[in-house]
Simulated scan of single mutants.
Amino acid sequence: MNTEQARFNMIQQQIRPWEVLDPGVLALLSVVKREDFVPAEHRELAFADVEIPLKPGARPGQTMLPPRVEARLLQELAVRNTDKVLEIGTGSGYMAALLAAKAEFVYSVEIDPELVERARRNLQQAGVANVSVDLGDASRGWDLYAPYDAIVVSGSLPVLPEALLRQLKIGGRLIAVVGEAPTMEARLIRRPDEDAFSSENLFETVVAPLDNALQPEKFVF
């Protein structure tokens, strides 16, 4: 495989058509080597438009998102170099590396111990120093370092937990894929003041659910 040609094709054929046109984001996708964060057994899929399992027998949420989804989420979150960012669901560490290139610091949380170690190793080998990877369940937020300027959820949520929204700073942004298959939408949530949140639907997609995600209340007849 011609790696650089495959990367170029990914950007031009998958990512640009998904309205990812920010020059900074496109340049970053050329610099942060996605193939270095893909499990060795799936390296040939590094630039394919698919979710990639991160370990043998991986659960639905233990995947890398398709490149076009990662890129669009990154663009819409509009991370600044003064931002303190929370990522929920570290996976391989690839999204954390992208975020870290734009943020002051990234706090990433992963529920699977094996993936925590792998992500830490991947990030270290990539020379990324402004990311910490914690082991834990952040499906309802991670108050250890709250509040955050930006939050990104690297898996879908049937509903957005109120506790997670409350961990945003005033002026902060949160991006997550919300809903249940086959109907999910990527949403950008902003917190303009203490008690107000605005929501913008960005695009429709279907991605695997986050482990232990809050479930909607079911009516019992």
Rank of each mutant, 00 (worst) to 15 (best):
P66R: 15
F105N: 07
E117D: 12
L77Y: 00
S139K: 02
K169Q: 07
V133P: 00
R59D: 15
Q124W: 09
A181Y: 11
A163F: 09
F105S: 01
R80V: 05
L77D: 03
S132A: 15
R80D: 13
R72D: 00
L144C: 11
I175C: 04
P60N: 05
Q167N: 07
D134E: 13
E87T: 12
R166I: 07
D83E: 13
L77V: 09
K55T: 11
A150Q: 05
A103S: 06
R121E: 13
L135H: 12
S154M: 13
Y148K: 01
A97V: 02
Y94A: 01
D112R: 11
E104Q: 14
R80T: 15
I111R: 05
G61V: 01
D112G: 08
D137V: 04
V79M: 00
N122Y: 09
L115D: 05
R120V: 13
Q124P: 12
A129E: 15
V177K: 06
K84R: 14
V109G: 00
L135T: 11
L77K: 01
V106R: 03
V133D: 01
L135E: 15
V79N: 01
K55Q: 10
G155W: 03
K84V: 12
W142M: 00
Q62P: 02
I88P: 06
L99S: 05
Q125H: 13
A100Y: 00
L98M: 09
G136A: 11
V109I: 15
G93C: 05
L73Y: 03
N130S: 13
A146K: 03
G136F: 06
A146T: 10
L77A: 01
G93A: 06
R120M: 10
V152E: 05
L165R: 12
G136V: 00
V178Q: 00
A146H: 06
L165M: 14
Q62T: 04
L164I: 07
A71Q: 02
L123A: 06
L115M: 10
K55P: 09
L157E: 02
K169H: 08
D137K: 03
P147W: 01
S156G: 08
Y107H: 15
A176S: 08
S139A: 11
G179A: 06
Y148C: 01
S108V: 11
G127I: 14
S139R: 07
A181D: 14
F105V: 06
